[in-house]
């Protein structure tokens, strides 16, 4: 633990209102949910001195996600483990359960939260792409009120979010799903589990009777400064019949939309090539059906 513990006071609000009061009144407040990102930053000594707002102490948040009439609401303490073990979620939003399994390992999934994954704003986040593929909406709360932001418009740059210092992400809302969509999720890391993604595709596709792409979602991790919904490539595909030629077009289009880098985990070339492969793999798997 490289961080200097006296630099990190903690406020333990007992209600959401109290937490929002704190955010409104004080500066340099960092919400603390499952801590699985913040504790890593503290261990490596890169977390700036700040006051933490311990969301664990808020009684208002039932940890279990709310699921009714096809709507799913994840609150600040909903963990990945919930998405794996709640059979209703597994059935209704299978990508969440699949993504949850790919995030680190069981002992982290029990503490890491969906909202925390959104708020950490890592381009390599494994949970955010699944949420984005389901058109997730964020509810942001402050002392002054609430507003909603579509998740795919939430990120504005590397670690830049449409989030004010006095706001807390209090809910992720997933709308009910139309029938007829096919899902795809594939994470590429250097080993099977416990890996940071080098690229990742959460995809959904809806084909009509004539094999025309009615609608599509393509969301990628680790190939842009933030979780990328590839809207250009989606629009290349939308309303067009799914054919080998159009798959080639999509594979071409995605290259202009991503901006991967070389780093200690992989190379730009690899990320470009595999991202293309993922799109092909996803679309090809629907071609033959």
């Amino acid at each position: 633990m490289r961080s200097y513990l006296p630099d990190y006071p903690v406020i333990n609000p007992t209600s959401l209102d109290e937490a929002l009061e704190v955010l409104a009144a004080k500066s340099n407040i960092k919400p603390l949910a499952g801590g699985t990102d913040i504790m890593v930053y503290m261990d490596t000594g890169v977390f700036p001195a700040s006051t933490l707002l311990n969301l664990y102490s808020i009684q208002d948040f039932s940890k279990t996600p709310e699921f009714s009439d096809g709507h799913l609401k994840l609150n600040p303490l909903s963990t990945y483990q919930h998405a794996r073990t709640d059979q209703a979620i597994v059935n209704a939003f299978p990508l969440l359960a699949i993504a949850a399994k790919e995030i680190s390992v069981l002992a982290v999934q029990s503490r890491a939260t969906w909202i925390g994954n959104v708020a950490n704003a890592s381009p390599a986040a494994d949970g955010v792409p699944a949420l984005m593929a389901y058109d997730a909406m964020l509810k942001l709360s402050s002392k002054d009120g609430q507003r909603e932001v579509p998740l795919h418009q939430f990120y504005q740059g590397y670690k830049q979010m449409d989030l004010q210092p006095n706001e807390l992400i209090t809910e992720i809302q997933l709308p009910p799903l139309d029938p007829g969509w096919k899902d795809y999720y594939r994470k590429v890391g250097t080993r099977r589990f416990q890996a940071i993604s080098k690229t990742l595709l959460a995809g959904r596709i809806k084909l009509n009777e004539g094999r025309v792409i009615e609608d599509i979602r393509l969301v990628f991790a680790s190939v842009a400064p933030y979780t990328l919904r590839a809207v250009q490539t989606e629009s290349v595909l939308r309303s067009r019949p799914l054919t080998p030629e159009i798959i080639d077009e999509a594979a071409q289009a995605i290259q202009d939309e991503i901006s991967p880098i070389d780093d200690i985990r992989s190379t730009e070339t690899y990320r470009r090539q595999v991202t293309t492969n993922l799109i092909r793999d996803f679309l090809n798997s629907n071609l033959t059906k």
Binding site: V40, R191, R192, A195, I264, R265
Partner: peptide, 16 residues
């Protein structure tokens, strides 16, 4: 060693 964090030095796990 630029990747001197446990998370960035990949050894095989039970699943590999």
């Amino acid at each position: 060693m630029a990747n001197n964090q446990y998370t960035n030095y990949i050894i095989p796990t039970t699943a590999d």
